[in-house]
């Protein structure tokens, strides 16, 4: 069922064009990596602050609000460049465990970031203990690392 849709997607003109071209896939991949740098920066800024190893003189809430547009922007950018890569090789992705690891981690990472982590970063700092902040940061870092490592591993066959 899912495989069928993946096959249809891969057979589209966009998928075909990216596969046929020598340079399109690598260029899209490069842009995906630029997005990785930005999202990495945004995620690390917030989590380093929560761990107490970052911009400690600024309130957590401020660091998180400053990072938010870059996080959302790079997420959208990576979603577009990632979808294009996926369109070119959807069937290969279907059979790669790394792809499913990445997508599950991504779903969890997004859910965690915009619910639990957000409630901690936006809360009054005096009411959230340092232990809870650190725990949230560690969970966030683990989930995003799962996305990144899974993503890199899709490329290895």
């Amino acid at each position: 069922m899912v495989l069928h849709y993946f096959q249809l997607l891969q057979a589209t003109r966009v998928g075909e064009a990216i596969r046929q071209s020598t340079w399109m896939f690598p260029v899209i991949e490069s842009f995906h990596l630029m997005g990785l740098a930005v999202i990495g920066g945004a995620v690390l800024m917030v989590n380093l602050r929560l761990l107490g190893f970052g911009l400690n003189r600024q309130p957590v809430r401020q660091v998180a609000s400053d990072a938010q547009p870059w996080l959302i922007g790079s997420l959208i950018f990576m979603f577009i460049t990632g979808s294009l890569q996926f369109t070119a090789e959807a069937v290969k992705c279907y059979y790669r465990e790394a792809f499913w690891v990445k997508m599950s981690s991504l779903l969890l990472a997004i859910l965690f970031t915009f619910t639990i982590q957000r409630s901690v970063t936006m809360a009054d700092e005096k009411r959230v203990g340092p232990l809870r902040c650190r725990l949230v940061a560690l969970v966030s870092l683990t989930l995003w690392a799962g996305v990144a490592i899974g993503g890199r591993w899709i490329g290895f066959s």
Binding site: A37, V38, G40
Partner: peptide, 12 residues
């Protein structure tokens, strides 16, 4: 993956 640490923070 270290791109996130090095380039990510440099970009910031």
């Amino acid at each position: 993956l270290t791109l996130t640490l090095f380039a990510g923070l440099a970009v910031m």
